[in-house]
Amino acid sequence: MPVFCSSCENKRAVLKRPKTAHSLCKECFFWAFEEEVHHTIITARLFNRGETVGIGASGGKDSTVLAHVMKVLNERFDYGLKLLLLSVDEGITGYRDDSLETVKRNQQQYDLPLKIVSYEELYGWTMDAIVKQVGLKNNCTFCGVFRRQALDRGAMMLKVDKICTGHNADDIAETVLMNVLRGDIARLRRCTAISTASEGEGVIPRCKPLKYAYEKEIVLYAYFKKLDYFSTECIYSPNAYRGHARAFLKDLEAVRPSSIMDVIHSGENLSVREGVRMPVQGTCSRCGYISSQALCKACVLLEGLNRGLPRLGIGKHHRLHGKILAQQPLTEREERKLRAVDF
């Protein structure tokens, strides 16, 4: 017995929406999904007419759906935005090279300009080379920190006003959980924000139009629309902590689908007691990027790679920033601590 669409009541339903428990047919689902993203964009006033918006595009399902929906909504509601695709080539053979091919096809399919910035040109290191030096344990730290800056630098080259990324509701709920579990109050406070204000020179405001879109709906939207996306896992992805948070959330979602929205809601409404010390945002004295320390994380990580001391940026070594800035050598004891690579 086919289930009929609870909206139009005359077509076969193709999915049960986790957010509303409605059964919808393809057409009604596309419409509901797009309208909700539009609602998010309008309510949070994410964009202004005439802006150039860079869509962070990895070739994966989230950013492919984001690019598609942004293009559709920009035309349907006449946002007056100039859209372009912005990709980062981390230099991961067998993964990013393949997914970038997808982005290049998306560029044709959506008729949007594309800019690719690579770790190699920005930092002189590919992820393949970094993994060779640091091993598989902390490589995600390097990749994450470098990617954030790379996207900003690419956006600046293109004179983009805003960047939007494909983070979905599941991603944000995971991040809330992880920050609670790690006691990272500063990030817990920031992580549910739908957009970041311009935090200073060289940092372009970012926003997440898919913040309230469930991953299940994104996967099904891409599937039913037959969007061209890349679905292989990163070959270096041992991001165990996030993996546990994700598996836990998926278990909760199976029992109660609203769990994901509920966790986001909790994160949004947390208030931090006055008197809790927060890091003060400043700028990196080497590259000028935002940083709460004398040197930003990317510069410390890079210094560690270049000195052959990959652990320099893993953990807290703020005391050493002065020495690094003055290009002084470290003592043998300091070096020993930073050299060890454990597998």
Binding site: G94, L136, K137, D170, E215, K216, V219, Y223, T232, E233, C234, I235, S237, P238, N239, A240, R242, G243, H244, R246, A247, K250
Partner: peptide, 20 residues
């Protein structure tokens, strides 16, 4: 069947143990 779990602990080199 489509998996949307990211860190499934599966990668192309199954001999290599992940942190999970």
């Amino acid at each position: 069947w489509s998996s949307s779990l990211l860190c499934m602990g599966v990668n192309r080199r199954p001999h290599k143990k992940t942190e999970c």
